[in-house]
């Protein structure tokens, strides 16, 4: 495969990525777990890292890129320190999820999918968090917040520096 473009990659020397690639070498179906773990190191998938993964798994970069853009979990741009997953599921929808999303957008002054300038928050609308009994729901990092009303949003956001 083409190796013309990887002479001075910023992640060339990143030992964490090197270790990961070593761990998954030769394993079947390694691409998605590798992308997941790479994203948990860098917070997103930097292009040089995608190139190294492609090379290590002996896959065309187009296939790696195809997988990285197919699944909603993967991000090709840096994300905020805290990711706010706002549930857009049916139960949340009929209980006013759109007003929660509106309020978040106004509080943080960003649109869904965007990250605040100070890299504090990213808003990520998601299909369903499966906590429908407490609709409407959002999750900040791995912490779920239920029975939301627009008024409680500022208080919740204040908890995350």
């Amino acid at each position: 495969m083409c190796t013309c473009n990887n002479q001075s990659l910023p992640y060339e020397g990143d030992s964490r990525l090197t270790e990961l690639l070593e761990e998954y070498k030769g394993q079947k179906g390694a691409l998605i777990p590798l992308l997941q773990k790479t994203q948990s190191i860098f917070g997103y998938l930097p292009e040089p890292a995608l190139r190294r993964i492609a090379e290590s798994l002996k896959l065309p970069l187009s296939q790696v890129y195809g997988v990285a853009t197919f699944y909603s979990q993967f991000r090709l741009k840096p994300q905020g320190r805290h990711v706010i997953k706002v549930c857009q599921g049916t139960a949340c929808h009929v209980r006013g999820a759109s007003r929660i999303l509106d309020r978040l957008q106004r509080e943080l002054n960003i649109k869904p999918g965007e990250t605040t300038e100070d890299l504090r928050f990213t808003i990520e609308p998601v299909a369903c968090l499966g906590a429908c009994g407490l609709a409407p729901v959002m999750m900040v990092d791995d912490e779920a917040h239920g029975r939301l009303t627009p008024d409680v949003i500022p208080k919740i956001l204040a908890k995350y520096a």
Binding site: Q88, G89, H93, G130
Partner: peptide, 11 residues
């Protein structure tokens, strides 16, 4: 991969 919005029995 319980993806249906509104279903959470599998979870």
């Amino acid at each position: 991969d319980e993806g249906d919005p509104g279903a959470f029995m599998d979870r």
